[in-house]
Design a binder for these strands. Structure first.
Lengths: 367, 367
DNA sequence: ATTGTCCAATTGTATAGACAATTATACAAA
DNA sequence: TTTGTATAATTGTCTATACAATTGGACAAT
């Protein structure tokens, strides 16, 4: 039965009490869609409130999309679809949807969002702060409910600055794939240290003793991979030859990496295997080796990292660490959705495991 | 100067007159962002209206995002950005953001949207009607302003059905890359007929007389390519050998295509070149040829279609038709934005040109 | 069957006035 | 310096009341 009680003594405004009471009854189904609620006069009799007060409450519910007034007929409850809860949209900021793992990540996030009847707005940052910032402002204006963010290649404080903007608006953020040192926030990553360690161990077990490595130092992911590589070597009492460690501070540029690949391959007599920081470098190395007439894996073995979707169909047959990128996207979405639903708890740091995919680019060396 | 005149005799409600007058003065810059407007008491003196009436007008402007009340301080004009006009969001429906040309297309559309301060909601259809339909409903609920749609692999009437749903809601739609026969609607495509014709001519000019082809018949694009191939052959008085035309009715499946590739390659003595319907098939053929120890281009030449982003870095060195996918995305976005801005004119059908990218997979045959 | 007129219910607009809550500011007290 | 307190300006909440506008439905006129 209809039942509205107003506590005149409460500090809660009476129009607000009425409003809350009505919403409750609508959501609990006392008033169903298309039902007519009591007229203003009736509510006046029931509650003793002034009509203006009642109107204020009802007007708010009309603005919120719960009710609809029809002159001479009364006030009616709107359908669920139209009422209240608007669509939830999650912003996804990735470096570049065309390449690397971004498509896979976006796909995982998108599928998971779709399953929960939400959508993603996709933004390319090109790993640049300015572009990311542009999208950040825009996403906030658009009113997204949450953000999945792959930090850009900019300095940490720049990335922090972007995250801060969301925090100020109470929009939850999940970091995907890359971390920002010292920042305690929800994240979904893979264990790059452990992955690189396992991969290097694998190479060592195959008999390789001189292992070159080439990677960028821009991201937490690759820095961890370098650390894993170093640990595996020192653990096996092998020297880390600084000549064989080629790092780059700059962002990924096809041309730079070709140069790096060439300079490393020039020393190919000094080593039996190369650990490429990620598959794209691996393929550049493979192409360069082909050009320099160095046979893989005959003369030198090659291992990658990522196992990108097309790695599988690439004729090099690259042995690489498979990263569960799709799952990163999924889990990031799940995490952000649980935050949007209001879950309060300490930041959750999900770390997924990678696994080795053996193809044909690594040879076994007989001692 | 501040100046509010209310006509008490007018049938226009006085609160509405006040409201309109205030909006006008805000938009004309009499009140600038962060300015304080007169207090309720002052307006009362200026107009002679009751405070409740004034409040009603002001409350509406607060709801509309023009004003902000600050207790004890007064009522202030908000920034333009926050006020009124909501963000425009464009839905983009692609087969699969992970593979093929979708990432490039989404990137083109996304960049163009960003330049115009809009966003894209990205949806993967997997070329399935049901998934597309799911997203369609959701996009409509979300209130997107326009749609860029790559038709699914479903029958035409299913795709028409999806488009119809948008039309009913007056949401403009642009078809990207693929067409639906008989449908007169905005579209951005490439000239597949002409492209395939040129590519086949190129092969013929290189001395190839027996040219196999393998493609799917599911999409308008590939059907046109087949037609272009046939035209080039007959024009040069070469027979179209039905044994060398391998078509598939089903959707793209790695396994099926491997089988098709194998059966075509078994006949490799009968031909000197293969025209692969798109690059992904081309790479499957290349991998299969490698397995069967058939040298490309030594024993057989191979040409693709699409020039996907990674084709370039693929060691096969595939000669292929470059499709301006990024531009398709851009132009689609431009077209949809002009429709959203209200442009009325006959459906515009933009056809972009492809061009040949010569790499090393096609040999010249000496006669 | 269509059109016109009136009625009554209900929401829409408006006035006048009262007191409450909030908060920037200034000033006092610790 | 910090903390508490008073003040006044302004918006926030609420009552009581009146008349206007809209409109479904009944009924009459054409």
């Amino acid at each position: 039965m209809v039942d509205i009680i107003i506590d005149k003594g409460s500090p809660v405004p009476q129009y607000f009490q009425l409003q809350t009471s009505l919403i409750e009854q609508i959501e609990q189904g006392v008033f169903k869609p298309n039902d007519k609620i009591p007229t203003e006069a009736e509510i006046q009799n029931m509650t003793g409130l002034a009509r203006a007060t009642i109107r204020q409450a009802i007007q708010n519910l009309v603005n919120m999309g719960y009710l609809e007034r029809r002159r001479r007929l009364g006030t009616f409850v709107l359908d669920r679809v139209q009422s209240g809860k608007k669509q939830t949209i999650i912003g996804v900021l990735v470096p570049d949807i065309r390449s690397g793992y971004s498509p896979e990540l976006a796909r995982g996030a998108g599928d998971e969002a779709a399953q929960n009847r939400h959508s993603i707005i996709l933004c390319n940052t090109d790993d640049l702060y300015v572009k990311a910032n542009y999208h950040v402002e825009h996403l906030i204006e658009t009113g997204v409910s949450g953000i999945i963010f792959v930090p850009t290649a900019s300095p940490d404080e720049k990335n922090l600055d972007l995250i801060e903007k969301f925090k100020r608006k109470n929009i939850p953020v999940v970091l995907a794939d890359r971390l920002i040192p010292g920042l305690d926030i929800d994240s979904v990553t893979t264990d790059n240290f452990d992955g690189a360690y396992s991969l290097t161990r694998y190479l060592i077990d195959k008999g390789h003793q001189q292992i070159g490595i080439i990677l960028s130092m821009l991201f937490s992911t690759e820095r961890e991979r370098l650390a894993g590589y170093q640990k595996a070597l020192t653990e096996s009492r092998l020297d880390v030859d600084p000549d064989l460690v080629v790092t780059s501070e700059g962002p990924f540029s096809e041309k730079d990496y070709r140069e790096h690949a060439r300079s490393l391959l020039k020393q190919h007599k000094k080593m039996s295997a190369i650990f490429a920081g990620h598959d794209r470098i691996a393929f550049i190395i493979a192409a360069m080796a082909h050009k320099m007439r160095i046979d893989i894996p005959g003369e030198i073995s090659l291992a990658g990292y990522d196992d990108l979707p097309f790695t599988n169909s690439h004729p090099v047959g690259l042995t690489t660490m498979h990263q569960p990128i799709y799952e990163i996207g999924q889990q990031s979405m799940n995490l952000i959705l649980s935050r949007i639903r209001g879950k309060k708890s300490a930041p959750k740091k999900i770390v997924l495991q990678s696994y080795l995919v053996e193809r044909s680019s690594v040879a076994t060396i007989l001692k």
